[in-house]
Write a protein that binds this DNA or RNA. Sequence first.
DNA 1: GCCAACGTTGGC
DNA 2: GCCAACGTTGGC
Length: 153
Amino acid sequence: MSFWLLKSEPEVFSIDDLRSSPRKTTCWDGVRNYQARNFLRAMQVGDRAFFYHSNCAEPGIVGIVAIVREAYADSTAFDRRDPHYDPKSDRRHPTWYMVDVKLVRKLERSISLTELKARANSALAGLLLLRRGNRLSVLPVDEHHWNRIAALE
DNA sequence: GCCAACGTTGGC
DNA sequence: GCCAACGTTGGC
């Protein structure tokens, strides 16, 4: 089992939106960065991911999700009217992929980016989320980092 | 709203 | 292949 972190802007899709989704499941579409896409394709059913709120008043980890369907073609890339439309992606050889994720639970207490940063030089040294200039919306998380973060809740 | 960081595009 | 211009991300 591998561990990941998925960013979402809460004004676009929040942890509460996921909680109120049918079967508390959603497809994680719209990823248009090759490195992030490669991480999506490496995900396996049963993997866990932190749900992270970005670009908001208090960025941080707000929940835990499970991967419930492995990577498949992101259909929004084929839809001319979709903001994530990409004419370079074709149905036979898709450029972009998505996975399905299901809510495991919303954290009782969010873990803010500030809190994570406070441990950037100790318990969470090397955490990719804290790397300078990091903008990837899909990131792997080492198991020992996962455990240390989970212990902060 | 600002701006640093980074990815992509396209001319050459 | 280089690199300037441009667009996006995301913290603040």
